[in-house]
């Protein structure tokens, strides 16, 4: 009886203290979810560190982090929120860098709708245009800037449906509830998407650049694997994955 009980404790200790493998907890903006999974798998294979990924809109991740969420690294969809976290003392100054430059794309699973760039939105068959919430998601803000600069906002305002983050905007279009939508190129290039070609990549001069910054958070400051991950994100393999999902790269 006594030995049995003791044995359980030993097993518990073995289970919770693996020799070198540790865990890194990373908050990731929704648009980067799929590339992040690819990169995390490679990171785990190489370092044996396990990666936990949480995705949401950058705005929500920001609110969670400022309220004590246990994330060690943030991969945001903009440059503003990482800077705000540094200003608040929640993120580590000097750790911030641009890991990807996002591309906004107009996408529909229906190829007949994709004609003539933005003019596709003027067609009668379009009842709903999906985009992310401009207040919380940088890709939503970019979509708003595009529509506004082309004078399409007043025309489309009542047909816009907003996803809480870019993931939901994509899902509205993919499920056929909205005919067309402004989504991240990375989502369209997801290997699970069957219609990657029915799209019009929005020229980048139509909106402020979607520079996406990564930053080390205070909770990861003394956790070596978190820093290792940020280094891994700048290495050729990760950059290649980021590029493959349609992002631009800096530096």
């Amino acid at each position: 009886m006594y030995i049995k009980w003791y044995g359980h404790i030993v097993w518990l200790l073995v289970a919770i203290t693996p020799c070198h493998a540790a865990e890194v907890t990373i908050a990731v903006a929704s648009n980067f979810r799929v590339p992040m999974e690819v990169i995390a798998d490679a990171f785990t294979a190489q370092t044996k560190h396990h990666v936990t990924i949480s995705t949401a809109s950058t705005g929500k991740l920001y609110a969670q982090i400022t309220h004590g969420a246990p994330f060690e690294v943030l991969l945001a969809a903009d440059t503003r929120h990482p800077q705000l976290l540094i200003d608040k003392g929640v993120a580590v100054e000097g750790s911030v860098f641009t890991y990807a430059v996002g591309r906004l794309t107009l996408w529909s699973p229906n190829p007949t709708l994709m004609i003539d760039g933005l003019n596709a939105l003027r067609q009668d068959g379009i009842r709903h245009v999906a985009m992310a919430n401009p207040k919380t998601a940088p890709y939503g803000q970019a979509a708003y800037e595009v529509l506004n600069s082309k004078g399409l906002w007043p025309l489309l305002q009542h047909r816009i449906v907003q996803g809480e983050n870019i993931g939901q905007a994509f899902q509205f279009v993919a499920s056929g509830n909205a005919e067309i939508g402004f989504v991240a190129l990375s989502q369209v290039l997801n290997p699970r998407n069957l219609h990657p070609d029915n799209r019009w990549d929005v020229p980048q001069h139509l909106h402020a650049p979607l520079e996406q910054n990564a930053v080390l958070l205070r909770k990861g400051q003394s956790h070596e694997p978190a820093k290792t991950f940020l280094r891994f994100l700048r290495e050729p393999f990760a950059r290649q994955v980021i590029h493959r999902f349609g992002y631009g790269l800096r530096g």
């Binding site: 207040k135 816009i160 449906v161 509830n177």
Partner: peptide
């Protein structure tokens, strides 16, 4: 409502969604 609504002001953006948006934007 969050899943099927699309957060359209005046049409599908109900109180609980407004609260959610307010919290997200601080």
């Amino acid at each position: 409502v969050l899943m099927v609504g699309g957060s359209i002001p005046g049409k599908t953006k109900v109180l609980s969604i407004s609260i959610y948006d307010h919290v997200e934007t601080l």
